[in-house]
Amino acid sequence: MEDLPIIQKTYDLIKWYVPILTRLPKAHKFTLGDRMINKLYDLLEGLITARYAKQKITQLKSLNTQLDILRYQTRLLLDLQLIPIYRYEYAGKSINDIGTDLGGWIKQQNKF
């Protein structure tokens, strides 16, 4: 069975983002870094679970909230000068792409 594009995009974001987050300074690595890593893994797990769920809409809306939290956490990394602008832009684009796919999935589920 092929992965949904949103699942693959989330997987790719995790592969790219986790090594960056694990190299944060100690003062942020075990707080913001760990929270973001856990949020990314939760997002991937939630998307996979939603794929097989009968009633997807509630779970998808919850994942949308998690994605928004990741957006703010990513912006916080930039504002605290923990990542350079080019990494912020890449992460933001990736998160927005996932958000677009998630929004489309929610819209499709609202039709049922």
Score class of each variant (00 low, 15 high):
Leu32Pro: 05
His28Cys: 07
Leu60Trp: 03
Leu77Thr: 08
His28Gln: 15
Pro19Ile: 06
Ala27Met: 07
Met36Cys: 05
Ile6Ser: 06
Leu76Lys: 11
Ile69Cys: 05
Ala50Tyr: 04
Thr74Ala: 03
Gln8Thr: 15
Thr22Glu: 15
Arg51Tyr: 13
Asp79Leu: 02
Lys61Tyr: 05
Arg35Ala: 05
Val18Asn: 03
Asn38Glu: 13
Lys54Thr: 14
Leu82Met: 05
Asn64Tyr: 10
Leu44Arg: 07
Ile37Asp: 01
Gln59Thr: 15
Ala53Gly: 09
His28Met: 10
Ile7Glu: 09
Leu77Asn: 09
Leu47Thr: 02
Gln73Ala: 00
Gln55Ser: 13
Tyr41Val: 14
Lys39Trp: 00
Arg71Gly: 03
Ile85Val: 12
Asp42Ala: 13
Asp12Phe: 00
Lys9Ser: 11
Leu70Phe: 09
Thr65Val: 10
Thr10Cys: 01
Tyr41His: 11
Lys29Ser: 03
Leu82Glu: 07
Asp12Ile: 03
Asp12Lys: 07
Ser62Leu: 08
Lys39Met: 11
Asp12Val: 04
Gln59Val: 14
Tyr17Cys: 12
Leu24Ala: 08
Pro84Leu: 08
Asp34Gln: 12
Met36Ile: 10
Asp79Pro: 02
Lys26Ser: 14
Gln81His: 15
Leu63Trp: 06
Arg75His: 10
Tyr72Glu: 11
Arg23Phe: 04
Thr58Ser: 13
Thr49Tyr: 09
Ile37Gly: 01
Ile14Val: 12
Asp42Lys: 10
Gln55Leu: 12
Ala27Cys: 00
Leu32Thr: 11
Ala27Tyr: 01
Asp79Phe: 00
Arg75Phe: 00
Leu24Gly: 09
Thr31Tyr: 06
Gln66Trp: 01
Thr10His: 00
Leu80Phe: 12
Thr58Lys: 13
Asn64Thr: 12
Ala53Trp: 04
Pro84Val: 05
Ala27Ile: 07
Tyr11Gln: 07
Arg51Thr: 07
Arg35Asp: 13
Thr22Trp: 02
Leu76Gly: 06
Gln66Ala: 11
Leu60His: 01
Gln59His: 10
Arg23Asp: 15
Leu67Asn: 05
Ile83Val: 13
Tyr52Pro: 02
Lys26His: 12
Leu70Glu: 02
Trp16Ala: 11
